[in-house]
């Protein structure tokens, strides 16, 4: 303890997510919210549909968040945020950022029409999807964000999911929204930078944050950060941003692309997979990665 050194922290120390929340051990969604709110600051309104975060926040009359929260119905996160923004503008408040914060079920499946509507109207909101690849809150049911081969309670081992994950980023790029990005919780500075950038853009912004879930993925809680890092290094979930649906920029290019086996081994939901299925998955990942590289090159 003799060293006298100033601690250098890469993020601001202000915390808007409080302790005592109801998240599971090693929750990735809590980290996503923590980094995101560090970037946006206290002048933010959150609209949360039914998702893990509507539970993590705490029961009435408590809330662990330092910003106002509006709990909405499952399918209406984006339209609620639109309404809150319109209401704030009527009172003359143009500064407050309105955020719709949904899980992957509320974004990929149930809330897709509201999100598409908001993106088409180009309403001035940020839509954040934290992606834990199933309906974790209600008991690990399959969603359209669940990757190929994964176990869930509605796609048991014998009949594991054999459809690939829905490409929500391409859907949002087709709406030509001003700014959209993907991020992973294992790169907090990257999440912070992208959230800051989204805050300054006007129009509909879409952030897709990868948030590992130890409970649903049957992984160890301490591997949360490792999984979030591996998924980027293995090019399963590349980090990129898109402006106006056309200008693709790769923000994190892995030095050497690793095979996906290590990533699958850490998770109990992929334990049943046979080598031939893993080979098919690896080919699909390679295909998507070359497709993305092409998009980033000829922009």
């Amino acid at each position: 303890m003799s060293k006298e050194k100033k601690m250098k922290l890469s993020l601001p120390t202000e915390e808007l997510v409080g302790s005592g929340n109801l998240a599971c051990q090693g929750c990735g969604a809590t980290l996503a919210m923590r980094y995101f709110l560090k970037a946006l600051g206290p002048k933010t309104v959150l609209c949360i549909p039914a998702c893990c975060w509507s539970v993590i926040d705490g029961p009435y009359p408590y809330s662990c968040l330092g910003v106002p929260v509006h709990h909405s119905a499952f399918e209406t996160a984006a339209s609620t945020a639109t309404g809150v923004k319109a209401g704030l503008q009527m009172t003359g408040d143009n500064e407050t950022t309105v955020v719709a914060w949904g899980g992957d079920g509320g974004t990929f499946d149930i809330g897709l029409q509201a999100l598409s509507g908001a993106a088409e109207r180009n309403d001035d909101i940020i839509y954040v999807c934290y992606d834990n690849e199933a309906y974790m809150n209600t008991g690990i049911q399959r969603s359209s964000a669940t990757p190929l081969g994964a176990w869930t309670t509605t796609t048991p081992v014998k009949f594991f999911k054999d459809q690939p994950k829905k490409d929500i980023d391409a859907i949002m790029a087709a709406h030509r929204i001003p700014y959209q990005a993907t991020a992973s919780i294992s790169y907090p500075e990257d999440v912070y930078k992208k959230a800051k950038k989204a805050k300054d853009v006007k129009g509909t912004r879409f952030l897709h944050i990868y948030a590992p879930c130890p409970t649903g993925w049957k992984s160890r809680p301490e591997d949360t950060i490792k999984l979030g890092r591996m998924v980027v290094q293995n090019c399963i979930f590349p980090l990129f941003e898109v402006e106006h649906g056309e200008k693709y920029t790769l923000t994190m290019k892995p030095a050497n692309k690793k095979p996906i086996d290590d990533y699958l081994k850490l998770q109990g939901r992929f334990r049943h997979l046979k080598p031939e299925t893993i080979k098919v998955m690896q080919e699909a990942v390679d295909h998507e990665w070359t497709r993305l590289l092409k998009l980033c090159e000829n922009r």
């Binding site: 409080g18 005592g20 009435y60 009359p61 408590y62």
Partner: peptide, 19 residues
Amino acid sequence: VPTMPMSLGSMLWNKTGTW
């Protein structure tokens, strides 16, 4: 009880260290 559902306090009473 307030007429509008709103949060009145933080979750700090919930000592999650017992988990």
